[in-house]
């Protein structure tokens, strides 16, 4: 004969105990942890996401040291002086970075095109496999009927 265990009563007691002792969650849940801080999808390729990222990168690759100066007249004057003093150092570095960014975006574009190509080939192969499978099934049927 099974003993009756009052689960609700037990869980209420546990809740009270947790509250009394002040136990709190102090860590991310597994779901939140595995989502990642950046929200990147680490697993699985999604074409739409890839194209969106590529489109963003295509607009953002080029860097420049020039930014509109804000603030009052005096502030803008000092900022202009600082910019004039620093451009000889910053601009070559930014140019190198922009060149690297340009290559990276081109490479991303290549990868997306590669995926497109493979998808197309895979679709063709799947179609061929399906046709061959139908043929095999039909031949099996014919053989079974002959026997």
């Amino acid at each position: 004969m099974a003993a009756t265990v009052n689960v609700e009563e037990i869980m209420n007691e546990i809740r009270e105990d947790i509250q009394k002792k002040g136990y709190k969650k102090d860590q991310l849940s597994f779901e939140d942890f595995s989502a990642g801080a950046t929200g990147l999808t680490r697993y699985g390729f999604d074409e739409k996401t890839a194209l969106e990222i590529l489109s963003d990168a295509s607009r953002q690759w080029q860097l420049t040291s020039w930014k509109p100066l804000t603030g009052g007249k005096v502030k803008r004057f000092f900022k202009r002086c600082i910019r004039h003093c620093a451009y000889w150092l910053m601009d070559p570095v930014l140019m190198d970075q922009s060149n690297f960014n340009s290559s990276s975006v081109k490479m991303m574009d290549q990868f997306v095109s590669y995926v497109d190509l493979r998808n197309s080939e895979t679709a063709d192969m799947r179609k061929q496999i399906s046709e061959l499978q139908e043929e095999v099934n039909s031949l099996r049927k014919q053989l079974a009927e002959k026997n």
Partner: peptide
């Protein structure tokens, strides 16, 4: 009825059940 069946899997509650 063969065990403790929980309707809430809040980790603090589950830990409390484990202790109990």
């Amino acid at each position: 009825y063969g065990g403790l069946l929980l309707s809430d899997k809040n980790p603090l509650l589950v830990a409390g059940a484990m202790n109990r």
